[in-house]
Amino acid sequence: MINIDGNILEDNAHISIYNRGFAYGDAVFETIKVVNGKKLFWEDHYFRLMASMRIMRMEIPMNFTMEFLETEISEILKANGFETGNARVKLIVYRNEGGLYLPEHNSVGYTISVRPLQTDVYTLNTSNYEVDLFKDYYVAPTLLSTLKTNNKAINVVGSIFASENELDNCLLLNTNKNVVEALNGNLFLVKGNTIKTPPLSDGCLKGVMRTQIIKFVGQLNDFELQEASISPFELQKADELFITNVITGIQSVTKYRKKEFFNSVAKMLLEKLNVAVRLS
């Protein structure tokens, strides 16, 4: 079952070919992890969605309160039998059809879909996880690149490149040739007692899990957080690399080219993440 503009319909329901999210990528979205029926970091997702809609100059309906959208998500979880289960929820908000590049208006519609998840906690995957740089195309470091929109061509092409080269993931560069993020999450680099992550001004996604990890690092006495540009040269000098997103939590990188990495910091932060999830 799927929610389209508040109507719960069968999965085979269709949207118009003139839908602007389909025709122009004129849409923003949030991917939310649900554990035992609980929507993790929902407040962070909601406020990022509202900020994204404002940046995209979409009208925010009066009824788009945090409570309203949470109820809409709960209803579609219930309709699919996940009200107390584990699921991946995708909430897409698109500008309503009309116009070409220039919209006729800025009103919006939305869809909410769900998929089952097998695990109810964040676990550290310690199997081999190899990455390399994707250098065919670059991220423009602008405010738009920090949003979760339907314009994900570089992520799609990069994922195909990774698959063709037997890589588990790729790291994206911006037009200044700094490392920005992975194809499916934010990047953190550990060197000594410093933990670095690219700043939003470099064009990385304003990730919800990125926000959580930054908060956890701030609670550590033995480490210093830096939001600073990361050059490709630094990757091979690092002690540890890991990637974050709300579904996986933390994914340790085991290998970048000939360099292999540890995962002690990722493991420690993952423990803090699971404590936060249990207490939320």
Rank of each mutant, 00 (worst) to 15 (best):
Q219Y: 04
R48G: 00
P61N: 09
V108A: 08
R257C: 14
Q226K: 15
K33E: 09
K258T: 14
Q236V: 11
K177Y: 09
M50S: 06
A266H: 01
K237Y: 10
M58Y: 03
F64C: 06
E83D: 14
V275S: 10
A266N: 00
G203D: 01
N186I: 00
I92C: 10
I4D: 08
L91I: 12
T31Y: 11
L189K: 03
E67M: 09
S264N: 14
Y46H: 03
G6H: 15
F161H: 06
A140K: 13
K258M: 11
H14Q: 15
V179N: 12
Q212T: 09
N150S: 14
V114C: 10
Y110I: 06
F82V: 08
F47L: 12
K258I: 08
D132C: 11
V208I: 15
E164C: 10
D222H: 06
N174A: 09
R54W: 03
M58E: 02
S201E: 15
A228S: 12
E97C: 00
A23N: 13
M268K: 15
N178K: 15
N12H: 15
L269C: 00
N155M: 07
N19I: 08
L171R: 07
P103S: 08
L117K: 04
I195R: 00
V253E: 02
P116F: 04
V108Y: 05
N184D: 11
I112Y: 03
S127W: 02
R278H: 14
L144Q: 14
N151W: 09
N193M: 03
A276N: 13
V156H: 08
N80C: 12
P141Y: 02
E271F: 07
S201P: 04
V275W: 08
V108E: 05
A238S: 15
E164Q: 15
F22I: 08
D132P: 05
K38G: 02
V121Y: 08
S229T: 13
M209T: 14
K177V: 08
M268E: 12
M209A: 06
K255Y: 04
T254Q: 07
F47D: 06
L173E: 00
N151D: 09
P103R: 06
G25R: 00
Y137V: 11
D222V: 04
M209C: 13
E260H: 11
E271V: 07
E72F: 10
L9A: 15
V253G: 00
T197P: 01
R95K: 03
A228C: 09
A162L: 10
M50P: 04
K38D: 09
K39C: 11
A13V: 12
V275P: 05
P232R: 07
V121W: 03
R210M: 11
I55K: 07
D26C: 02
L269F: 01
V139W: 04
L205H: 06
G21T: 07
E30C: 05
L189T: 02
L133S: 10
I213T: 07
M209N: 12
L49W: 04
E271S: 14
N96D: 03
P232M: 11
L49Q: 05
